[in-house]
């Protein structure tokens, strides 16, 4: 009963539809940024290395290499500031959290491509 009520209160703040993507996918995250009184959309591109939490608390971690420095950002899945998530390339991942990618650099960071039908078609 308690969980039911809390879930229904949460449900008002969930996005009606979240694009399907999986751990290992390369995605473009469209992020709304407020600068003073202007808002603009910034795109963060990288590999999804983790998804965690449930309901309104669900987040995903995107990792990308900038130069030879690894950059990770954690996005709340249902945040209104995360405008869009576009999966570009599906990667083969054999575990739920790809934290081992942090220790790798160069060519070994790449994941083998998997041909999945949830990718954005151009």
């Amino acid at each position: 009963m308690k969980t039911e009520i809390l879930d229904s209160v949460e449900a008002r703040h969930l996005k009606p539809e979240v694009p399907h993507f999986e751990v290992g996918d390369t995605v473009d995250v469209h992020c709304r940024i407020v600068e003073g009184n202007k808002t603009r959309v910034q795109v963060f591109n990288g590999t999804v290395i983790a998804r965690s939490g449930r309901g309104i608390n669900e987040t995903f971690t995107v990792r990308r290499m900038v130069g030879d420095e690894g950059v990770e950002r954690i996005f709340p899945l249902h945040s209104p500031n995360v405008v869009d998530i576009r999966p570009l390339r599906s990667g083969k991942a054999r575990r739920a959290k790809l934290y081992y990618l942090r220790k790798r650099s160069g060519k070994s960071v790449r994941l083998a491509q998997r041909h999945s039908d949830h990718m954005v078609r151009k």
Binding site: V9, V34, I56, N57, S79, P80, N81
Partner: peptide, 21 residues
């Protein structure tokens, strides 16, 4: 008191909220 959860405000910030019966 039913319990606590989270909600987004109009500016997209997450806030802790309490649900009361």
């Amino acid at each position: 008191k039913v319990g606590m959860t989270q909600a987004y405000d109009s500016e997209g910030r997450m806030t802790a909220v309490t649900v009361l019966q």
